[in-house]
């Protein structure tokens, strides 16, 4: 029998800090790319997506972790998907009834959250094999790692592509247009999101030599 670990023991803290850098879901585990491309045209939807993923990933991880000893191996993928989908639909329905405006923002993302590889990936890699508290922390950590990448990419795409930040016309205010700057339409398109993430990976690996791939 394993001894009882402190709630915030060193190992548990690592579950939250690792995904921020050395085990980042997007730049290291290569999960959640599709949404990183689609959602990051503007800051606002990126933040909404980050918060929704935080909720769904943590709760789903806990639910699967609680059920993990009961799930037959042969149907485990389907079970995980059903848990994720049910959770997302439940959230969407409740929002639609009581906070209609928020649900309108979210309805676009419902499909994207259900098929977000991060959620499925973490459920399979961690939730199925660990206890509920650890799974919860793992969900939190990965959501934070995902969120900061989303926000970083969205920051540059919205700023350079539309000249705004969270809808606020920043470039106009500081007079950059007068110097001849024009909104870079390419930034709005998905390929530039890929290149932006590529650059983030570059910077990350310069700082963290462990991640550099050997020849």
């Amino acid at each position: 029998m394993s001894e009882k670990e402190a709630l915030f023991s060193k190992k548990n803290k690592k579950l939250i800090t690792d995904p921020l850098d050395s085990n980042n879901p997007v730049t290291v585990q290569v999960l959640g790319i599709c949404s990183a491309l689609a959602i990051t045209v503007q800051l606002k939807p990126a933040i909404v997506m980050a918060i929704s993923t935080l909720f769904v990933l943590s709760v789903a991880n806990v639910v699967i972790s609680l059920m993990r000893k009961l799930i037959p191996s042969r149907i485990r993928i389907i079970v995980m998907l059903v848990v994720i989908a049910t959770l997302v639909i439940l959230v969407d329905q409740i929002l639609k009834a009581y906070v209609y405006d928020v649900s309108k923002e979210l309805s676009v993302f419902v499909g994207l959250i259900i098929t977000n590889c991060i959620i499925m990936g973490r459920l399979e890699a961690f939730g199925m094999a660990n206890g509920p508290w650890k799974s919860f922390l793992d969900g939190l950590g990965n959501s934070f790692g995902y969120a900061w990448i989303l926000i970083a990419v969205a920051f540059f795409r919205e700023l350079l592509g539309s000249g705004t930040l969270y809808g606020y016309p920043v470039l106009e205010e500081i007079g950059l247009y007068n110097l001849g700057y024009e909104n870079n339409g390419m930034m709005i398109l998905p390929p530039m999101a890929l290149i932006t993430v590529g650059i983030i990976i570059w910077i990350q690996r310069v700082k963290n030599k462990d991640l550099v791939e050997s020849k």
Partner: peptide
Amino acid sequence: PPALRGLGITFIITGLMGIAFM
């Protein structure tokens, strides 16, 4: 460059191929 090796350069190449496919 070492830090770009593997995943990093793949992202950038895919981005460029995406532009070409447009």
